[in-house]
């Protein structure tokens, strides 16, 4: 009798969850189809996709996301590797730093950027468009740090870094060859997972882009939301699909990894 009631409860909980999570998605989708009176159509999507502003801001955010991923990988992989190999006692400090962006709200960090790198400061990064872009990529890299570092560090932990390094060095490989040909391929799944997550975070990011005044996708969406009725719903559906795509790709690479991996002893 106990298992029966608990089973009913479980299904009830799941049902409520499905309604709660399903309705907004359904509602958004339904709303996005209402642009033409009296009939459902994809008019809102057509309008959005044809909007040059959409194309420009989405392209810009796409570029930012890619730049962030490259910078994040260049920064995180060698550091995580080096800390595991040579500076294990530094690990808590480094790990703590990478977790700080979870503690300090993004809005505070970007506030600091504006104060510290304004046009009259010692490093006037906000002075020109391209240097602001650079600052924004650095900001995004900072935001992605907790996820990226953890993903890579977990990937490295499953490898025996020290032995792999010694083996490669005994075969005459240089440090660069080692990282490029041995370490990177072995943590590629971790990097890819981190990269897709970074992408999902950056593509619709609002606060940094809005406060640094850059023409990114997030502020564009916000602007549409303030001025239009149906286009925002279409944008939300597109953004949700993108997030879903990123998570799907993470699942996909993780599954591939499992196929490649040597069966583990249980």
């Amino acid at each position: 009798m106990n298992t029966m009631t608990s089973r009913i409860w479980s299904w009830l909980v799941l049902l409520v969850a499905i309604i709660y999570f399903g309705l907004p998605l359904l509602g958004t989708f339904e709303f996005s189809l209402r642009m033409l009176r009296g009939t459902y159509s994809f008019e809102a999507y057509r309008v959005v996709l044809a909007d040059p502003q959409f194309q420009a801001t989405f392209g810009y955010s796409l570029l930012m996301a890619c730049a962030t991923i490259v910078m994040g990988v260049v920064l995180v992989v060698p550091t995580a590797y080096w800390v595991r190999l040579k500076l294990p006692h530094w690990r808590p400090i480094i790990e703590f730093i990478t977790l700080l962006p979870l503690v300090i709200p993004a809005i505070v960090i970007v506030f600091g950027y504006i104060r510290l790198y304004n046009t009259s400061s010692w490093l006037p990064l906000t002075g020109t468009a391209w240097s602001t872009d650079l600052l924004m990529v650095c900001g995004y890299t900072t935001l992605a740090l907790p996820y990226l570092y953890r993903a890579v560090d977990t990937g490295l932990r499953s490898l025996d870094i020290a032995t792999l390094t010694e083996a490669a060095e005994s075969l005459g490989a240089s440090k660069f060859t080692l990282i490029w040909r041995i370490i990177l391929p072995n943590v590629s799944v971790a990097i890819l997972s981190g990269a897709f997550l970074t992408f999902a975070i950056v593509i619709g990011e609002f606060v940094l882009a809005a406060l640094l005044n850059r023409p990114a996708f997030g502020p564009y969406m916000q602007l549409m939301g303030a001025n239009r009725a149906y286009e925002p719903a279409a944008l939300a559906v597109i953004a949700f699909a993108l997030t879903w795509l990123c998570m799907g790709l993470i699942q996909l690479v993780n599954r591939r990894q499992r196929h490649l991996a040597v069966p583990q002893h249980r």
């Binding site: 309705l23 958004t28 619709g204 925002p232 719903a233 939300a236 949700f240 998570m247």
Partner: peptide, 17 residues
């Protein structure tokens, strides 16, 4: 997916619902 679906689009979704 849902834990990363915060921000502007989420607001739109709830407004549309």
């Amino acid at each position: 997916v849902a834990s990363n679906f915060a921000g502007v689009p989420l607001a739109f979704a709830f407004l549309a619902t």
